[in-house]
Structures are given as C-alpha cells and as structure tokens.
Nucleic acid binder design. Structure first.
Length: 274
DNA sequence: AGTAATCCCTGGCAGC
DNA sequence: TGCTGCCAGGGATTAC
C-alpha cells in the first residue's frame, strides 16, 4: 500500500499511529467529504476526488475477480468486494478480520486526520455552503445565499460555496432541469430562475442516489444491461443526442475547464453570449 | 473579485 | 500490438 501522497495534513506515520486502536463512533458527510468520527473526538476525513472508493471488505465473503466499468463515466467499480490491488492505498483492519479499503486509481483523493477540535478549523470543510438534502435547504435561505452572487452559474455551482456537494454531472443535470444556460451569469437571474434551480438541485441528487443504489445492486451481471442509468441523466454524457424535452441536439462546450452538456434550445443563453 | 490556466495522477479509448 | 493524444465524476493554487 502506498499511503504517502493522499495523506494531506500529517505524515503517513502519524496518520497510522493516530488511528490505531480507535473505535469509529459515527460516520457522516459534509459536501463531498466523508467523516469518520472516532471515539476520542478525533476524526478521519476522506475526499474521494474523481475516482476514490471507500469499500467494506467482509472476511467471510469471496472477492470479486474483476471490476465493472461504469457505462457512463468509464470508471472501474467493484461489483461486490475486491482484493487490494495496485490502486488500493489504505487498509483499515477492523475486529474479526474485516477491513475498510481505500482505492483510488487517479489519486486525486485526499485523506486527513484531525485531533479533537482540529477539524473545525479546516477551511475546505468550514467554508462549505448549504446542504441541498438537509431540512434547512429552504427557499428563503437559498435565495438569500444565491441572489448576491455574480459570475457564471456553472462555476458558481461547482464552487461548493453557496451550495455544497454538486459536481460536474449534477450541475449539468440541475441546469438542464431548470432550463438555465451554464454560462448565464448569476446577476441576470430573477427569483423565478432561482426557484427553478432551487427545486432542481435536490431533485437531481435524490434521483442519483436512488438510481445509483439500484445500479450497484444490479451490477452482478458482468457487462450486462444496467438499470435506468441512461434515462436518469438528461444532459451529462448525452452530447449530440436529442434533448429529452425538445428533441433538438444537445451540445458540448467547455466551461471553466469542465466538459459541459446543455440544450441550446431549452437553455437559452442571455443575449450577450450569442 | 472574478476567472482562466496549471497542476496533482492513472487508465481507457480512438485513431493511426 | 503499440504508440500518441485526448478524455475523465475535483479542487487548490497561481497568474492575470
């Protein structure tokens, strides 16, 4: 296991020693950070980056020999549980021989260890915006956070600041659903536009969660048919395919260095961008 | 302040 | 079969 590069705020040795023998008291998530709260109030924090996977390995179960390739993203996923391989960077050995495994082919992921009280001062966590699946994600708070913002919608939504947890896929999906152009500027939106976005964000996330769960369960067929994957994503990965609202061809552009798919007909750009 | 470029990595794939 | 170039679910940092 190579545990060097992904540990960001301490040395691998300190990281290992700090975790040794500690019980996991609770698990949580904030934005794209996974948080393992340990019994002494210290914490292990994981960011999966683009290709990271945290999986549970049960000593009583067989390993899967191969990985399934996600038809949309091209990323390898284990169908059930896998043996550590050259991309497995950390193993946490639990009681009775089970393990938590961290695997990350592209190595954009990050691991952090925080002493009690330290995590609160961790900027990337502290400055995250509102949680779109929380009960506190309500229209007045959303509008208040968004209305003063300036700049293009796509980078604004990717920034994690007004709203946490959205990545490239779900930003494109939310913008498609709310009929907003990814390059449209925040200051040009009226409350109705913001309202559409406010409704779209939790919707695409919930659909993703629901869908991903079922896909993983269906994934025991080698390279077989997959559940509702194709129907779920309306924009991402569908460049040159017909818009599911208006049948016109979806278009791929690059916005803040990220691949972006949108419908030129439904998601009209502001006049300035034409 | 906003935004664009750059960098951190590896692997799959198309095209030659 | 093997090479090259391009692409990829993120985000911090640096440069303008």
């Amino acid at each position: 296991m190579r545990l060097l590069k992904q540990v960001k705020n301490t040395t691998p040795g300190r990281f290992r020693n700090a975790l040794e023998g500690k019980r996991i008291a609770a698990t949580g998530r904030r934005g794209k950070f996974l948080i393992f709260h340990l019994e002494d109030k210290s914490a292990l924090v994981v960011h999966l980056g683009m290709s990271g996977q945290v999986t549970y390995w049960d000593h009583a179960k067989d390993n899967d020999k191969s990985f399934a390739v996600d038809p949309v993203t091209g990323l390898q996923r284990s169908r059930s549980q896998h043996a550590p391989d050259k991309h497995t960077h950390a193993l946490w050995h639990l009681d009775k021989g089970d393990r938590i495994q961290y695997r990350d082919p592209r190595q954009f992921g990050k691991l952090f260890y925080f002493e009690p009280g330290e995590m609160e001062g961790f900027k990337p966590l502290a400055r995250l915006g509102m949680e779109p699946l929380d009960a506190a994600f309500r229209w007045p708070a959303f509008h208040k956070a968004m209305a003063p913002k300036r700049g293009m919608l796509k980078p604004l939504l990717l920034s994690q600041h007004p709203v946490a947890g959205l990545g490239n896929i779900y930003v494109d999906e939310a913008l498609w659903l709310s009929r907003l152009h990814p390059r449209r500027r925040a200051e040009s939106l009226d409350p109705n536009h913001w309202k559409a976005l406010f409704r779209a964000i939790p919707k695409v996330l919930k659909q993703g969660l629901k869908h991903r769960g079922t896909t993983l369960m269906d994934f025991r067929n080698a390279d077989g048919t997959h559940g509702g994957n194709q129907e779920l994503l309306k924009a991402y990965g569908r460049a040159e395919e017909p818009c599911l609202r208006c049948r016109k061809s979806l278009k791929r552009i690059v916005v803040s260095q990220r691949a972006t798919v949108y419908c030129p007909s439904c998601q009209r750009p502001p006049a300035r961008l034409k």
